[in-house]
Amino acid sequence: MMFSLTGAAVRALTELPIAAKFDPWEVAPPGVWLIFGIVGLPVYIAFLGWFAGSPRNLKSSVLGSVVFLTFVTSLWGGLFALTMVIRLLFY
C-alpha cells in the first residue's frame, strides 16, 4: 500500500507537464486585481495612515478626505464642463 502510494506520488511528480498553464483572465479580469488590488494599495495605505496612524485626529483625517473627494469631483466636473462647452461651440 505504502509503496504504491509513494510510486504514485513519484509518477505524479515526474509526469507533471513541463509548461503549466496559468491564465489570470480565468481568475478575474486583470484590471480588477491590478487596479483595485495593486495600484490602489498606496492610496489605501495613505488613508489607513490618516485614520489609524499616529498622531491623528478625526477632524484632520475627515478634512483630508473631503479635500481628496473635492478634487476628484472638480477634476471630472471641470472636464465635463469643458467638453460640454466644446459640444455647444462645435457640434
Partner: peptide, 20 residues
Amino acid sequence: REDKIIERMVWWLALGIIVL
C-alpha cells in the same frame, strides 16, 4: 494644534505617491 498631525498626513501621502 493640527500642524503635527497634518505633517504626518502629508508624510502618508508622500509614501503613497512615491510608490504610485
